[in-house]
Write a protein that binds this DNA or RNA. Structure first.
Lengths: 142, 142
DNA sequence: GCTGAAATTGGAATTATTCTAATTCGGGAT
DNA sequence: ATCCCGAATTAGAATAATTCCAATTTCAGC
């Protein structure tokens, strides 16, 4: 039984020119494809470095702009661990993150099938949760 | 049924000179008492401002030092919402945080009695979680 | 009351991120 | 195809939170 989330890597290229109402510019496409290519939760700076390989003129500001556009259009998720720099994740399913303290590697962790927030949290009724972030740190079993 | 966590305010003053193996200096005592006095999840800067009222010579660096000492000795919890500045919380019980999008107010939210991580997360067996942070945003029911 | 280690301090430094203002791009109308 | 205009990109400056540094100060144990 696999518990950490694994993905079959979809082809990163050939994205439509508009997605979720977001104009897919060269740079946004590049940034998105970097995030899809290596699903290792890169930081903005990682994305910048990788993007420059294929698009040497891209700027860090643009990478930040693109990331913000992709996140707000829900094509990518932003991942935070305490005050570390934000990381980016293409897994759009409901999930959270586990950071291996040994290696720093971040793994996606899925919620058990059918679990609802009210099942494990004492939330006042009527509370509407618009955003949830659950971050774990620890050591992986062997 | 109360769902958000409420506290009876314990007396902030007269803390011992050593706590959890941490030397309780004037400044650490002051910082801790500020956090205990108003349980509104202040930022480091909030703590600095409030501390200065009674201890005008305290420096921001010291506030950061004290907070780090208190957090690492588990007398206070550090609370993060995305990339906002860290906030500090004297509630040592297992709990998480809900930020009201309307007001910015942060509420403690407790886990349902007896709930374990494995009840709602697909964690590989043998995984040891040493740190968990769950942050919610949304709107409160009326 | 000394002494050494730890804590405090003010200011400088760092880091991630955002802002700014100028330029470029690209799609629709002509 | 060309013009136009709003949006996107860019380089660099600015900001904000936090950490670092080096010089004092404190204080617990002798």
């Amino acid at each position: 039984m696999i518990s950490f989330d694994h993905h079959s890597s979809p082809a990163p290229e050939e994205l439509p020119s508009e997605l979720e109402g977001l104009r897919m510019t060269k740079q946004r496409r590049e940034v998105l494809s970097v995030i899809l290519a290596e699903r290792d939760h890169p930081t903005a700076n990682d994305v910048f470095t990788r993007s420059k390989e294929r698009m040497p003129t891209i700027s860090l500001a643009t990478v930040y702009n693109c990331l913000e556009a992709l996140v707000s259009h829900k094509l990518v998720k932003q991942v935070n661990f305490e005050r570390e720099s934000s990381r980016y994740c293409p897994n759009l399913n409901d999930h959270c993150h586990f950071q291996d303290e040994k290696t720093g590697t971040i793994h996606d962790v899925v919620f058990k099938k059918g679990v609802k927030l009210e099942d494990f949290l004492e939330l006042p009724q009527g509370t509407e949760v618009s955003h949830l972030e659950l971050s774990l740190k620890g050591r992986i079993g062997y």
